[in-house]
């Protein structure tokens, strides 16, 4: 089995209205239950927006924490799921369900050393 991260790519700015969001959340719940039933679900959560981000970095010997995201962009990772499936085709099928439910693009990336 292989581990894949599905990164949900979200545009900065407008949020969908609550009633639309409710429908999406219900749909996401269905997908999650399906994945759990197939023992493909590992982890998944939506993330707060970049306004809640803090960056920690080394400056010489000093550690500095700063407000804000790592890079300012038009898009950010709005949530991530980790799934365990047999190959890329299976991962792409799951990503397709998320893309359909949310209308957002997803980046599918394999974890290193994730196969057995």
């Amino acid at each position: 089995m292989m581990l894949y991260a599905l990164n949900m790519i979200q545009p900065v700015g407008e949020k969908p209205p609550p009633e639309a969001l409710e429908k999406v959340m219900a749909e996401l719940g269905v997908i999650r239950r399906d994945l759990e039933a197939q023992e493909a679900w590992v982890f998944g959560r939506p993330l707060h927006g970049p306004e809640a981000s803090t960056v920690v970095r080394c400056r010489g010997d000093e550690i500095v924490a700063m407000d804000g995201p790592w890079t300012e962009g038009k898009e950010f990772i709005g949530g991530l799921m980790i799934i365990q499936v047999r190959d890329l085709d299976a991962a792409l099928q799951v990503a397709a369900r998320y893309a359909k439910a949310t209308g957002l693009p997803l980046e599918v990336r394999p974890f290193q050393g994730g196969s057995d």
Binding site: M2, R86, L88, D89, R109, P110
Partner: peptide, 10 residues
């Protein structure tokens, strides 16, 4: 290899 693109007929 890394993304495990499957080796089979779809």
């Amino acid at each position: 290899r890394d993304a495990r693109i499957p080796y089979r007929v779809p």
